[in-house]
Design a binder for these strands. Structure first.
Lengths: 206, 206
DNA sequence: GACTGTGAATAAGTTCACAGCT
DNA sequence: AGCTGTGAACTTATTCACAGTC
């Protein structure tokens, strides 16, 4: 088996999501063309992606939905549970904590942290909020792997430093600031302003 | 001047953000190498991107921060104000409305909509919340261009349909569902679950 | 010497064209 | 016929190497 590109993996996660809704609709067979219609990608792209995980479809029929879902999950999400911590229980942090789809999957937010004393001690959607000082101990002890930065931009770097020191290997950063981290830590930036503006630019150029 | 790729534009938006924080720090000159250190990109990438907007740097010195910022803004964001509407005033929608960086830039949320009667009539961060029925009229009259889908997944397609019918040209979709829209409407999907999971996968493969 | 700007080389990603299966 | 799977062609994006400038 060869190495799989990050883009293929991201699309595989989309396929998994799509297959799961097909399962809910009691569909148990699907073709690459049908997946293409749903996702907006091309059928060839989808077949190519899927083929990098091994042969699983049957000609003339398509893919067995459950089998394909399992195949993709086994490659992409072997781990049973991915432990995540969140920094910043403001509006965005709360929104992330309350969104149900974090629980449906393998993602588990195991703790949230906030510097404001008024937030600590609360429980949001089953997740306890702790004062920021407790973060290093809790992260290490719980063996969390991912951190979400949902604090204002001027606190972003401080939070990232804590996360790095505590041993997190991936950071999802919603603060509109570039984080400085050692290269073994991977940062995914989600700057909503930039997302919206680049979407706008896309609409202009066509 | 040649055509500029979407990726270059997204990076240009990041450069603009970065230059603006440099301005705040009273830095008025910066090199591609320095921008590279801050953003995590390579210096060549940055020079190449910038050069596609025209010559603006001076050898031995670097770029004038203010001049470069203006140059990039003129290319990428000529428009004075980009009008946006939001559907779904739950936690995520409220978070988006309250985040300050939407106002710093050219993005302006001109209205929010929610089906729940209890939300309509409120004002969040200066943005009025209306019942969903008012959306078509308000969108058309205000000449809004972008829509944000922050409703639960089972309402996503309905909202997208309203947005398309009202003439919006771009949709930022936070609902974990694939939207079906005519091809002249551009959708940017931001599925937080997929973002986090793909980040996790990245941390595994190196 | 220390920077920018850029054509050329390389790498990554997508689409094409068609072989192969049932 | 109608689908999957895949090498090959092509397109897009990044990196290299170095010329040009102050």
């Amino acid at each position: 088996m060869k190495k799989i590109s990050g883009r293929t993996i991201t699309r595989a996660l989309l396929y998994i999501r799509t297959l799961e809704t097909l399962l809910k609709d009691k569909k148990d067979s699907v073709s690459s063309g049908e997946l293409a219609r749903i996702t907006g990608l091309t059928d060839v792209q989808i077949r190519k992606d899927i083929s990098s995980f091994g042969k699983v479809g049957t000609p003339r029929v398509g893919y067995d939905v459950r089998e394909l879902r399992n195949k993709l999950e086994n490659f992409v999400l072997q781990k049973k549970e991915i432990r995540v911590v969140l920094f910043g229980v403001g509006n965005l942090g709360t929104a992330i904590l309350k969104y149900p789809w974090l629980r449906k999957g393998k993602l588990k937010v195991i703790a949230a942290f906030d510097t404001s004393g008024s937030k600590a001690g609360k429980t949001i959607n089953g997740v306890s909020v702790y004062p920021a000082e407790k973060a290093p101990a809790i992260i290490k002890q719980s063996k969390a792997e991912l951190g979400i930065v949902a604090v204002p931009e001027d606190k972003g770097q401080d939070v990232a430093d804590i996360m790095v020191k505590a041993g997190l290997k991936g950071i999802a950063n919603f603060a509109p600031v570039s984080l400085k981290v050692p290269k073994h830590v991977i940062v995914r930036n989600i700057d909503l302003s930039i997302e919206f503006l680049s979407l706008f630019c896309d609409t202009q150029t066509r």
